[in-house]
Write a protein that binds this DNA or RNA. Structure first.
Length: 233
DNA sequence: CCCTATGTTCCCAA
DNA sequence: CTTGGGAACATAGG
């Protein structure tokens, strides 16, 4: 384990009983009522190797868990990824996951008292869990909403369009095992496929596939934001 | 040197 | 007290 991460937790002899997701966190349950909570942040990823006797050590591996039948590395060039080990059931509360339920009335109520743009609200993990920068851009493009629009100004029908855009974007991205813009790889080292479906993210200067307008890049909340000014209002 | 990067947390000002 | 904006974190690449 990377010494900058502290001392290695004692996991010898434990079994994994479940692996789940909470927003952007990965929860690995153990057979002793503990769980490991992982957050990959910007450049973190997990790599599973099995079937071998010797396992290669990938560049930027920050820690490894060796199992009886394989091993799991956390690869993270920028060292932003985090993990913690705690008792199951004492996790901090998590905001709603839009793939489970998207409560439009609740979002309208929250947005009413906020001065931030809709894109920044979608990225606020305390409000909605699990939407990141790529998918916020793609969702708002599918919903035909200007990412810089004040969240409090959205009409109910615009919120409905976001609700309808969320599920296909996020579910397809999951089915594609993510978006490989540069370094992302899935658990088995393969690139994701969702970059093939991106409509605006990284498409600055290219024609919008919906209306032939020109995709622009701006900065919102410190994040690169791609959108089509002609069809996103 | 400049800028960019899949995210969150901290600090400060309003 | 809350909110929002920017810097910081650490590293690579253009």
């Amino acid at each position: 384990m990377d010494p900058k991460l502290g001392s290695a937790p004692q996991l010898t002899g434990r079994r994994v009983t479940a692996v789940n997701r909470q927003g952007k966190s990965i929860i690995i349950k153990l057979d002793d009522d503990r769980c490991i909570r992982l957050h990959l942040r910007m450049t973190g990823r997990l790599l599973w190797q099995d079937g071998g006797i010797k396992y290669m050590v990938p560049d930027y591996s920050r820690w490894r868990i060796v199992f009886s039948h394989g091993c799991l590395d956390c690869i993270d060039p920028r060292r932003f990824a985090t993990f913690q080990i705690g008792q199951i059931g004492k996790e901090s509360s998590v905001s709603p996951d839009p793939l489970e339920e998207f409560d439009t009335d609740r979002l309208i109520k929250i947005a009413a008292s906020r001065k931030i743009c809709i894109k920044c609200l979608l990225l606020d993990q305390a409000v909605i869990s699990g939407i990141g920068n790529i998918y916020a851009c793609e969702i708002l493009h599918l919903a035909k909403i200007d990412p810089a629009r004040k969240a409090s100004d959205l009409t109910r029908s615009q919120w409905k369009r976001i609700a309808d855009a969320l599920r296909p974007i996020l579910q397809t991205a999951i089915d594609c095992r993510g978006t490989t813009a540069s370094d992302w790889r899935d658990l088995f080292g393969n690139p994701g496929e969702y970059q093939k479906y991106l409509k605006v993210y990284t498409k600055e200067g290219l024609p919008c596939s919906v209306c032939q307008g020109t995709v622009r890049r701006i900065r919102l909340g410190g994040r690169g934001t791609y959108y089509c000014p002609s069809c996103q209002r």
